[in-house]
Design a protein around this nucleic acid. Structure first.
Ligand SMILES: NC(=O)c1ccc[n+]([C@@H]2O[C@H](COP(=O)([O-])OP(=O)(O)OC[C@H]3O[C@@H](n4cnc5c(N)ncnc54)[C@H](O)[C@@H]3O)[C@@H](O)[C@H]2O)c1
Ligand SMILES: NC(=O)c1ccc[n+]([C@@H]2O[C@H](COP(=O)([O-])OP(=O)(O)OC[C@H]3O[C@@H](n4cnc5c(N)ncnc54)[C@H](O)[C@@H]3O)[C@@H](O)[C@H]2O)c1
Lengths: 256, 256
DNA sequence: GCAACTTTGTGCGTGCCTTCACAAGCGGCT
DNA sequence: AGCCGCTTGTGAAGGCACGCACAAAGTTGC
């Protein structure tokens, strides 16, 4: 499908050769593990080894890697350093991406102080809040600005990613400000569904939902152990050990 | 497959009627939105309205709800209160699930102080750390215990869910202790792949991966805007606006 | 230089998830 | 009482993702 064959359309568009979203997520995991292997002095790694270390099927891993090109050596494996380079290129990590964090409360403090973002190419370079006690202080060497400065400051510093850690009711307003500031990728920790224009990408981290999914599995296991329904109805799930959070869906019903 | 039809097996097993994992995640989102609607005094809600509010396709929403039974009224919609009750039952929220948090550092402090968990039926009732400066203090009224007490304390308090917020290298050891304590569901914030027996369910929250997925979309959009490849290769994705994090995969290579 | 071994890259079948589209069912209106 | 409009619940179809299994391709040893 969508092969660059003649016939269907007058102008033959270049094959999009898109990377499945699911694979992108795994590629990021491979990349981190490769970094650890490189530190340990590993020179090459086989798909089987890397798959075991990251907990995926080796065939799936090879297919994931095949989306970004053929950089393996048959009979040997993959060159760790070369693969790191290719993954960084494919994931768009050759340019640093500056991140803005809005809402420097409990969670925001932890995020702002976390070194794991900057260390992986995502320096948090702007902090925003409305609380007068917070605006003006420094966290991890970064000044907290007032949210009214979001449009100007984000453009000035070339911010491409926004992280929202405000209370739920404030999130949509902040989101709108970020979009106005030209930010087109948002990571949202507030438990609300953000409405955005379709060119903006939103990912939601929803810890309460994570716990509820786990709770569901607890309940399911209780049924299996007890061998009978607790509440008059049965609940079950096919596999477990999976980890897919959809909650998405070509959001029509949004701004569109 | 596995239909309760006569023929295949001597003893006909009751239809498992499993709920797809993807649907479970969305059901939790519907439940939260229904809670908000109930607060606003809504009596009934149609699939179209609820779908718009949660950003999903209305047909998908109806199918999700159909997995837990037929509680809608044709021509009217769903009774908000009745649907909340059914969702709570289906998700296993009729019993409170006590949560243990291990690692009370930056992130752990934020999690321990967060009221959103207890408010939604997941009270954090145990905290653990190794740092002598932390062991013994109270956070949000909960005493921080030493990690060596994990097995006894977790069993005493009937803990069913563990949240790991320690540095990566410590995570596997903590995980093993939790499993030994009978905890069978774990939410892991450390950037490592945990090896667990197959009866244990692990979900990973990996913020650096979230950012990398966003960065990938930034890069992809840059290409679209500039209309040419930046680095000699093209990268693209079909849809965007999706939100699936797999990174899983019937983890063979684990303990099994 | 050849044979045996190792590992990649991928074609293909299978199953899950999503989406469309519509019949069935329910309430309200006349 | 009967009709009409609205909404649910689901059959069917398509697409995506996963994983097996194997040919191709490279390496090592002799
Ligand atoms: N703390 C957690 O562990 C945790 C867990 C899951 C989800 N969350 C979610 O993350 C968000 C933040 O949680 P928190 O515990 O840090 O809350 P918090 O109340 O401690 O912090 C919120 C911060 O946002 C600021 N703020 C409020 N309105 C604002 C606005 N309009 N613009 C900018 N800043 C504003 C406040 O001044 C405060 O500093 C909430 O939506 C919460 O539901 C938090
Ligand atoms: N802070 C963030 O925003 C953030 C974001 C993403 C991921 N993470 C991950 O979450 C984890 C915690 O991050 P953090 O910023 O809170 O780190 P931190 O160093 O502030 O806190 C870690 C805590 O774990 C404790 N600890 C260390 N070894 C332990 C052990 N063996 N048993 C029990 N406790 C132990 C330490 O005493 C400390 O209190 C890390 O794995 C980090 O990669 C954090």
């Amino acid at each position: 499908m969508t092969l660059p064959q003649a016939g269907s359309d007058p102008v033959t568009v270049r094959a999009p050769r898109s990377i499945p979203e699911a694979s992108v997520a795994r590629l990021a995991v491979y990349l981190r593990m490769l970094g650890e292997l490189a530190e340990q002095g590993a020179d090459t790694v086989s798909s089987e080894e890397l798959a075991a270390a990251t907990g995926v099927n080796s065939a799936k891993l090879r297919k994931d890697l095949s989306y970004i090109g053929s950089y393996g050596i048959r009979g040997v494996g993959y060159s760790v350093s070369a693969l790191i380079h290719q993954l960084e290129r494919a994931l768009g990590l050759n340019h640093r991406q500056a991140v803005a964090l809005i809402g420097v409360g409990n969670l925001g403090h932890a995020l702002a102080g976390y070194g794991g973002f900057g260390g992986r190419g995502f320096p948090v370079t702007a902090l925003f809040d409305v609380d007068p006690d917070l605006v003006g202080i420094h966290i991890n060497g970064i000044l907290v600005d007032h949210v009214r400065d979001i449009p100007t400051t984000c453009r000035e510093r070339g911010i491409t990613i926004g992280m929202i850690a405000t209370p739920g009711p404030a999130a949509q307003g902040i989101c709108d400000a970020l979009v106005e500031a030209g930010v087109r990728c948002i990571l949202n920790f507030a438990p609300v569904v953000l409405q955005v224009p379709e060119e903006v990408e939103v990912r939601k981290v929803d810890l309460a939902v994570e716990l509820q999914i786990l709770a569901f599995h607890v309940a399911r296991k209780r049924l299996v152990v007890e061998g009978a329904e607790v509440d008059g109805e049965s609940l079950a799930v096919p596999d477990a050990q999976a980890n897919g959070h959809p909650v998405n869906g070509t959001s029509n019903g949004g701004i569109r």
